[in-house]
Design a binder for these strands. Structure first.
Lengths: 235, 235
DNA sequence: GCAAAAGTGTTTTGGGTACACCCATGC
DNA sequence: GCATGGGTGTACCCAAAACACTTTTGC
């Protein structure tokens, strides 16, 4: 047996390779995704994910970061991770293209400049999407929801500093169920993911105690709850 | 903006695409992976993962299943899932090749016929591996370990029917720590993943109570512990 | 004072580990 | 009987939800 690399293929029908990202943000208390509307070609007027062809000198993550830089300020992209490959032979018409899909996250306090054909669309109410892009959006949503539970990934959706009410709103919107601020604080604090800044912000117009400002301990992805079950023995 | 598909690329340096699998099995109380030894070319004599080029009419999962069929009986491959894309431009010498990596599992009671250049190697003691294949093996191992905790994936490593001691041995080898049979039974039973067959097997030569035979309720992957933490409210 | 929002203390619950003890077999 | 391994019952423990209650502001 010979490694494929040493044996120039004949009938591989070498596919092109593209990268696509479901970039998510909490806007107006809802989880939204960045889409652009196709002006031409197949699936005209349908909404598609940002991305494009993989270039010769970059790996897939560098590629999606480069291509997203045309859409949103790189500073604002707080987290990027690979989802999976979409490779059905007929997933796009014409020449075959294999896609590597990504999840991207933008914090809720930013409002990036985006091109005219591009808009944020609610994940719960997607418009007509192009190709297999809807499955990619749903995969991105599911990955985010899962990681909110066992990692500190909230840092990528929240501003650098925030009140617990704001954070509760973010988690509730992403998970689509009511998260209690009181328990959220305890869970994240116990795991060492959350820190009080000591500073506080003035109360709203309707009164109330002025909320304290918090921040995430780390702004890199960390698994905070590694073995939820089947944990190793203590000794 | 135009979708990449509608605009024939010029400088994409279209990469080839291969699929590779870390096929894991518990053998001799250890987690082992299927590797073949390169006889020529770059990385001669090093050990590589099974796989090969993606063909024009198949998606990546069909491709890896087809290519593994040359190595192990398809019947014996109880689980296949995608890991991630490895795409560093120089990951293999010569023409660029992007790889989609997979995890494959084979139950512990089978001993597939394998080609002469192919062997099972302990994941904990890998020989010199080719290209970036070691990272793929470790990714496969880590994915398996994580899923043992929150899914019923044990079904893919265990025979159709087994005693709890056998299952304990399988989990211990895969996780690399002592799993208690008594708790393993409770955890899997409570989740409805495990069933007693009612039948039992005769005791060993050194005596002892004859063990009962169990089976997994389902032989498809199911998430048995969806939200370990940050669970939705009950009402 | 009173309403409103933030934050803390305490109870309850559920699902894990740890471990003592009982069970069924070979010799 | 006795050694050996299998299986159950129970205690313990931790981390989550639920909720009552206190704190701090605006008016």
């Amino acid at each position: 047996m010979v490694h494929p690399n040493t044996q120039p293929g004949t009938d591989h029908g070498d596919a092109g390779h593209e990268v696509l990202a479901g970039v998510l943000q909490i806007r107006n208390e809802r989880l939204q995704v960045l889409l652009w509307q196709r002006a031409q070609g197949p699936h005209r007027y349908r909404w598609a994910l940002p991305g494009g062809r993989l270039a010769a000198t970059e790996d897939v993550e560098a590629s999606i970061r480069r291509q997203l830089a045309e859409k949103v300020d790189v500073q604002e992209l707080t987290h990027v991770e690979q989802l999976s490959v979409f490779s059905a032979p007929e997933r796009v018409p014409g020449r075959r293209i294999v896609a590597t899909a990504f999840l991207g996250l933008v914090p809720s306090n930013t409002d990036p400049e985006i091109p005219a054909d591009t808009q944020w669309q609610p994940v719960g109410h997607l418009p007509a999407t192009a190709f297999d892009h809807e499955s990619i959006v749903l995969a991105a949503r599911d990955r985010l929801r899962a990681k909110l539970s066992y990692t500190n990934i909230g840092f990528a959706l929240a501003p650098a500093e925030f009140t617990l009410s704001e954070l509760r709103g973010i988690y509730s919107a992403a998970l689509d169920y009511r998260v209690a601020a009181t328990n959220l604080q305890r869970v994240l604090s116990r795991r060492g993911a959350l820190q009080a800044t000591g500073r506080t912000v003035s109360a709203g117009p309707s009164g109330g105690r002025p909320p304290a400002l918090f921040r995430f301990t780390s702004r890199d992805l960390q698994i905070t709850d590694p073995f939820a079950v089947l944990r190793p023995p203590l000794h």
